[in-house]
């Protein structure tokens, strides 16, 4: 089975975020980047499916030169090949635009299965996978915890709200968006890192953005506080004493 994993590179979780002077986006100058966490789970699922059923795992990422570090890491973890879709203008493309350049790259590969994370940690629109499936004309299922190959198709476990799940059977080729927690993530081994250097990374250039976007991000800003937060300061012992006062006389739980 040929599995393609679409991953995104996003700012590190602990990154200090600063809005640019024009209020249009964040200052990317001193940010460090990492793989989008749900995409790491998608990659893990792909690697485990390959271990069980054989085949090939191809990892694909769109973005500027810096995303090749994320592709290298995926190769070190066990992906067989990588495709870098060179695009310095992702901010100028909306979800449909990004899904389109991913779909263009995928078409040439004709995989049996496409996996991606259920949403990104930065924009969090949670749609790229589903839109890609629609553009490619293949079935999809979202928020998937487990994948099993059954006959010529798949049986997947879909997570619903409030602790409910559902099995869904579907034909191949198909696209799944993967939820976190279905598997334990692996680390790249030294051997894996060495091997990655001999693996192929193909660079393709994204078609020029069409210019017509369906939605536009106009402004980013710090959220207004929903509550007036009283910040408690001091040494750990002083803070503990202040908190106990609040627990006794304000919250009244002790």
């Amino acid at each position: 089975m040929k599995i393609l994993v679409a991953v995104k590179q996003v700012p590190e979780r602990d990154a200090q975020i600063r809005v640019t002077a024009d209020g249009k986006w964040i200052d990317e100058g001193d940010l460090s980047y990492t793989i989008n966490e749900p995409d790491a789970y998608a990659l893990e699922e792909a690697l485990q499916l390959k271990e069980k059923n054989g085949g090939e795992v191809v990892v694909v990422c769109a973005g500027p030169e810096r995303v090749t570090s994320t592709l290298r890491e995926a190769l070190a973890k066990g992906a067989d090949r990588a495709i870098h879709i060179e695009a310095d203008d992702l901010g100028e493309r909306d979800t449909l635009g990004v899904a389109q350049i991913l779909a263009d790259a995928v078409k040439a590969e004709a995989p049996d299965l496409i996996l991606t994370g259920l949403q990104s940690d930065d924009l969090g629109l949670g749609q790229t996978g589903v839109v890609m499936a629609e553009l490619l004309g293949i079935p999809h299922a979202t928020i998937i915890m487990q994948v099993e190959v059954v006959g010529a198709g798949l049986k997947v476990k879909r997570e619903l709200e409030d602790g409910w799940f559902q099995h869904v059977e579907m034909p191949l080729p198909a696209l799944l968006t993967i939820q976190s927690g279905g598997n334990k993530l692996r680390y790249a081994t030294l051997m894996g890192i060495k091997k990655a250097k001999t693996k192929e990374t193909k660079t393709v250039t994204a078609a020029a953005a069409s210019g017509a976007k369906a939605i536009a991000l106009e402004r980013v800003y710090l959220p207004e506080k929903q509550k007036k937060t009283e910040m408690l300061t001091g040494t750990a012992t002083e803070i503990a004493a202040k908190l106990v006062e609040k627990l006794k006389f304000e919250v009244r739980v002790i």
Binding site: T95, A99, L125, Q127, V130, V131, E134, K213, A214, I215
Partner: peptide
């Protein structure tokens, strides 16, 4: 979760993008 499963595809049919969440 149900809407997340189909609404992005519906928007794509109209060449639009869901403004989600």
């Amino acid at each position: 979760y149900q809407v997340r499963d189909f609404a992005p595809a519906l928007a794509t049919r109209f060449k639009q993008v869901l403004i989600s969440d």
